[in-house]
Design a protein around this nucleic acid. Structure first.
Lengths: 186, 186
DNA sequence: TAACTAAAAGGACATTTGTCCCAACGCAAC
DNA sequence: GTTGCGTTGGGACAAATGTCCTTTTAGTTA
C-alpha cells in the first residue's frame, strides 16, 4: 500500500546532481494537503517523490473518493499521462509534507526515447503496479470488507503509516460509517 | 473490456513470418475452455492472441473468481511474469476457440533487452492496462452494482461480446443471484 | 475559560447483497 | 422418448452496507 522505489530514487538523484538539467528538473516542497496533480487537468509536470507520502486517488462524480495507493520515496506520478498523452487520471495529494523532483514533459519524453535504463525501470514499475492494483481489486471484490480491513491494518502497521479514518474508508471503498462499525465489533 | 492491440498483432505476425525464430515462436490452437496460463504455476511461455477471445481472471481461495478483462487479438499474456520473474498471477482461459502465438521465455527476454520498438509497445500496453484496471476498480467500488451492470451491458453490445451470466457476475464481482435480481428489475 | 472546528463514533432505518435452497428450461447422450 | 446435466431464474431469510443524523472528543483559537 505504501509503495517506494529505490532504483528510481537513485536514478533521479544522480540525474539531478549532474546539474546538466537544471532547467528541466528541480526539487520542490509541497505542504501537507496540497495537490501535485489534479484529476482531469493537463499533466504539465512529472513528479518523483523524494521525501514524504502522497496519496493517489480518484474522485468520482458522486462525490466519493477511492485511494489507489500511497506513494513514498522514489515513486513516480504523471508518467502514464505522458505515455498515453491524456489528462490526469487521478489526484496526487501530499499526505505529509513532501519533497519531490519535478520534471518537465520534454525531459521525460527524451528519457523515454533515449534512455534504456529509464525504460527498463519504468516497465518494471508499471508491471508492479498492475500486479498490485489488480490483485487488490480482485481481493476487495471477492472478500468481505472485514477481510480487507484486516489486511489494511496489517499493512498499515508494517509500514508504520498512520492515516485518517476517512482515508482508510476511501482505500477500502466503503463509507466511514461502515468502517466504524467494523472497527467497533473487532 | 474486450481489449485488442493492433500494433502487437502486426509486430508478432511479421516476426513470425520471417521464420528466423521458428524454434521460439509458433502458432497454436486452443480449444474453447482450455487454459493458456494457470494461476500460481510457473509461466514457461508467453502468448499473443491471434484470433478468438480469452478471459483473464483471478481464482481466490474462497472459490470465487474475478474477471479482470477479456483479451482479444494482439493482446499479450504472461509478460508480467517474465518482467517480474514470478509465477502466473492469474488464469488465462479460452472463451472461444483461440489461435495464439506462443513465445518462449528467452525470446521475450531478448526482445525486452534488444528491441526498443517492442519495449515501447509494451510500455504503452501496460500503461493502458493500469488506466483500465484502476478506473474500473474505482468505479466498481464507489458506484452501485446497478451502475456497473449498465456499463457492462453497454460494453458488451459495443463489442458484440456474448458471455455467460456467471462470467458477467465474475466481472462485476457479485454473486449470480445478485446479478439475476438486477436483471429482473431492469 | 469559552467557543469553534474537524475528526471520530454510533443510533435508527432502508436498501442491497449473500446464502441456501429449489424450479424451469434447453440440449445432448443413450 | 427419457435421463442427465449445465445454465438460468427466483423465493425466503440473514447479514452487510448506505444514508441521514446526532453526539462525543480533542485540539485550536479568540
Amino acid at each position: 500500500m505504501l509503495r517506494t522505489n529505490n532504483s528510481f530514487l537513485s536514478f533521479i538523484q544522480q540525474l539531478y546532481e549532474t546539474k546538466k538539467h537544471h532547467k528541466e528538473i528541480h526539487l520542490k516542497r509541497f505542504p501537507k494537503g496540497s495537490r501535485l496533480l489534479q484529476q482531469g487537468e493537463k499533466a504539465s509536470k512529472i513528479f518523483i517523490v523524494a521525501e514524504g507520502i502522497t496519496k493517489c486517488y480518484f474522485s468520482e462524480e458522486n462525490g466519493k473518493n477511492y485511494i489507489l495507493e500511497f506513494l513514498g520515496a522514489g515513486e513516480i506520478a504523471g508518467e502514464l499521462e505522458v505515455i498515453k498523452n491524456i489528462n490526469c487520471l487521478c489526484n496526487i495529494e501530499a499526505v505529509t509534507e513532501v519533497q519531490a523532483y519535478v520534471l518537465t514533459v520534454p525531459i521525460v519524453k527524451s528519457l523515454l526515447a533515449n534512455n534504456p535504463l529509464f525504460n527498463h525501470m519504468l516497465l518494471t514499475e508499471l508491471a508492479e503496479r498492475i500486479i498490485n492494483t489488480s490483485s487488490r481489486s480482485s481481493f476487495q471484490q471477492l472478500y468481505s470488507v472485514e477481510h480487507a480491513l484486516k489486511k489494511l491494518l496489517m499493512l498499515q502497521s508494517e509500514h508504520q503509516l498512520s492515516i485518517s479514518k476517512e482515508d482508510m474508508a476511501a482505500y477500502l471503498g466503503v463509507t466511514l460509517r461502515s468502517l466504524n462499525r467494523l472497527l467497533a465489533v473487532k
